[in-house]
Design a protein around this nucleic acid. Structure first.
Lengths: 252, 252
DNA sequence: CCGATATTTAATCGGTCGTATAATTAATTA
DNA sequence: TAATTAATTATACGACCGATTAAATATCGG
């Protein structure tokens, strides 16, 4: 070999955010304090999926922004779809555990005085807290959840797998606060709450424009108490409405 | 020319749904009773955008399913983005006029007895009616609206342009039913209603799975009165909540 | 019936896509 | 230290992408 041209020892995150003036040589890079490449890929994919949708993202673009090569995505995740699933699953586990703990704690502390407000507040707080203070990663993930939730094709399946248990838990608690309410009513009420929550998670600037700045889609402190009140009133109303219908049916 | 091989006179929709055993020759086809190709392209694009998202659709696939060539999409719409805009605008005009008429009619008929229920019912009925009885085209369009509405990137702008006027009209009517309510409260309440509506329009089978068949996402007759009641109770609650806060602030 | 115009097919351009494999280098283990 | 394993680059394959143009054919207005 005549001579080795000057080579950057930089590889992976050492180049992240900088111009890759020199490509790294092939082979396993020397150990360093970087964030593991696998995590960097997940972060970048999360951001891009949230902003451009699954189909709008190319594995090459993810690799580029993660300062990696397309082959690394194949190495860690095998396929684009499995990369997406890994992105989706990573934070779902975290937030689901927090939510389950919050609902358990609420039920234990409320004793026989369970309220719809209390249950919904416990259900929402972990998610809205992540949205508010969890940083860009959590915001991207939650925007992705909102997007997938309204997707006609594989929206249903992905959401069901991730979130059904916590939702059934919520409904089982609300059922105690609103006894004698039919499941059908409770599920429809949850459906409406879910839609309201997902639009909130999406953080489009729709409400900002509509209200000419009076409301800001990122103002979680304003949203949280209002969503709790709005949805709780809705749940109660559907319980009352049902009773009215039943009474009428009983004595027409 | 030695000989003309047997040629199908079929072109465009004459082949729709059949195997294109023979390609049509170039040139303007003879007149026939077909649906105009432009409309066929819009229908197919509407369906594909709804089911696979903007980025998930190729103009080639649209052309194929419309029994056309990619060049025809360029001929009628110039670009994929303008095709999307045409899909979005086509039915928005129709439903917006119906909604505006419904709100006008309600306000005129209610006189001084305007209720939140009445206003929301008038606002929702045209859309839910299209979803229920408008056929596959309307279902596809409304699923697309739901999808775009929760999109982080260009969701805000597209929705604002299409739907702001009708929403401002709705809020101006509700304001009469709930006087002394701050705009901020009304806009947040609408935000929640909007999310609930969009999830309904998406018609994912999420609620079907969650409720183990007790609720069906396509059962508009079940959804419409419940959404009206749920959202109306929410609007009223936010009005009351505000009054409570003001009273507290006045006399702490 | 002729010229202008509308609508269509065929063919193609340059680019990007997801995925796969071989070569290369460092870390780890025996 | 020798063998094995882990992590990376380089390169490439075949398919598909959005967009454009030229040629062909029918309709329509005179």
């Amino acid at each position: 070999m005549p001579h080795s041209p000057a080579r950057s020892t930089a590889s992976g995150a050492r180049r992240a955010g900088m111009r890759p003036l020199q490509r790294a040589r092939p082979g396993r890079p020397p150990k360093n304090g970087d964030v593991a490449l696998r995590e960097r890929i997940l972060d970048v994919a999360e951001e891009q999926f949230a902003k451009r949708g699954y189909e709008g993202v190319s594995t090459r673009a993810v690799a580029r922004d993660a300062a990696a090569t397309p082959a690394m995505i194949h190495y860690y995740f095998n396929s684009k779809r499995k990369l997406f699933d890994a992105v989706f699953a990573r934070r779902a586990d975290v937030v689901n555990k927090e939510r389950m703990a919050a609902l358990d704690a609420y039920e234990a502390s409320a004793g026989n005085n369970i309220t719809v407000e209390g249950a919904i507040a416990a259900f929402l707080r972990p998610v809205l807290n992540k949205l508010d203070t969890g940083g860009a990663g959590w915001r991207n993930y939650l925007a992705l959840v909102a997007q997938v939730g309204n997707l006609h094709e594989w929206g249903g399946a992905v959401m069901t797998q991730s979130f059904d248990p916590i939702i059934q838990r919520l409904i089982s608690i609300i059922r105690k606060a609103l006894p004698d309410t039919q499941d059908e009513e409770l599920y429809w009420a949850y459906h409406f709450l879910s839609g309201a929550l997902m639009l909130t998670l999406a953080e489009t600037d729709r409400i900002d424009r509509l209200s000419k700045g009076k409301c800001r889609s990122t103002d979680i402190a304003a949203i949280e108490p209002r969503l709790v009140q709005f949805a709780s009133a809705g749940f109660r109303q559907m319980c009352n409405q049902q009773k009215g219908t039943q009474a009428k049916k009983r004595k027409p």
